[in-house]
Amino acid sequence: MDVRRLRLLLELSRLGSMHEVAAELGLSTSAVSAQLAALAREVGTPLLEPDGRRVRLTPAGRRLADHAVTILAAVDAARLDLDPGADPAGTVRVGGFATAMVRSLLPVVQELASTHPAVRVLLHEYEPLEAFDLLAHDDLDLALVYDYDLSPLAPTLDLVVRPLWSAPWGVAVRVDGQGDGPIDLATLADSTWIVNSRHTADEEALRTLASLAGFTPRVEHRIDSLDLVAELVAGGAGSALLPLGRDFAGVRVREVAGQGTRLRAYAVARRGRDAWPPLRLLLDRLAHPVTDTLADTLADQVERHEPARDD
């Protein structure tokens, strides 16, 4: 159904005359008549009937004109929503890992609540593989994901990837009188290892580091929560990669001697969607944060993965 013809029908219901509709819209009366006749053929029922020397809407025509009000309003709203020059408005669905949400996203959301209240951001916690799948199925508008420099992302051509930040990771070992300096990973060749249960990047980084040290790591535990990983390390269940500079009870995170690794965070959107005003606004704010102090404070309070909940 041609929305331009619906607009003509709505104008006719308002003005009552094809001549007035033609004058209002800068068309000829014959063009208006031909378009309304084509609309009647589209819907399969007469929309106009004679009324002396004029015409009036049939009952079906009046019902369609009532529908046209809603339809045309929705079309206008969609055009405004998709107009790259329009003020940002709408709901942006964001999925990603907890640290990126806290360090990068939450300060932006708090800022936009004041500066752009028409932009609403919905948050969902996902690991990168989950977020990529949801992005591909259009169940997310923006994914906050990570990789390691030893296990880089391989995004498809239909994705736009924007780097956010990076952070060094080291090896977590028990606090049992060992030193604080860099550790030769070969000394842990006989250790068991703990890796992520929902993403493969840290295991791939670990296997690369171990290969450089001349051994193959024996992975026994797959855990999502960094707090639980640290508890297992402190209890002697194995070693693991954890972020340097973080405090974990009973655990010391040490730099890897020689070749280490860094976690890298990214914002990812489907190519072409990043021009949508509210998503473009969010991407620009993520790339140029204005509240670094708040972001760093919040980042100190969470892990890369949220601890498992009891409820």
Rank of each mutant, 00 (worst) to 15 (best):
L144K: 12
T156V: 04
L134Y: 13
A143E: 01
P163G: 09
L142R: 14
T156L: 11
V161W: 13
E125K: 04
E111S: 11
Y146I: 03
T156P: 00
E130C: 02
A136D: 13
L157K: 01
R120G: 01
D141F: 07
D141N: 04
S104M: 11
Y126P: 01
V119E: 12
D147C: 03
L159G: 02
V161L: 10
D138W: 07
A113S: 14
V119L: 08
E111M: 04
L106H: 10
A154S: 12
A143Y: 00
D141K: 06
A131V: 03
P152D: 09
L106N: 06
E130L: 06
F132N: 02
D133L: 10
P152G: 04
L105Q: 09
R162V: 15
Y146S: 10
D138Y: 09
P152H: 12
F132P: 00
P152Y: 13
A131N: 03
A143G: 04
L129D: 14
V108R: 07
V145F: 09
P168G: 02
R120Y: 06
Y148Q: 06
P117I: 02
P155G: 12
T115Q: 04
L123R: 11
L122T: 14
T115D: 14
L157N: 02
P163Q: 07
A167K: 13
H137G: 03
Q110L: 11
P128W: 12
P163D: 11
L105V: 09
D158Q: 08
Y146N: 08
D158M: 04
T156C: 01
A136W: 06
D133W: 07
L140P: 02
D138F: 08
A154E: 12
W165T: 10
P155I: 09
L105E: 04
P155F: 12
D149E: 12
L135W: 09
V145C: 07
L144E: 03
H124S: 12
S114N: 05
R162A: 08
W169N: 11
P168H: 00
V109R: 13
L122E: 14
L134Q: 13
Y146F: 15
H124W: 06
P128M: 09
S114R: 11
V109A: 15
L105T: 09
V108E: 07
L122R: 12
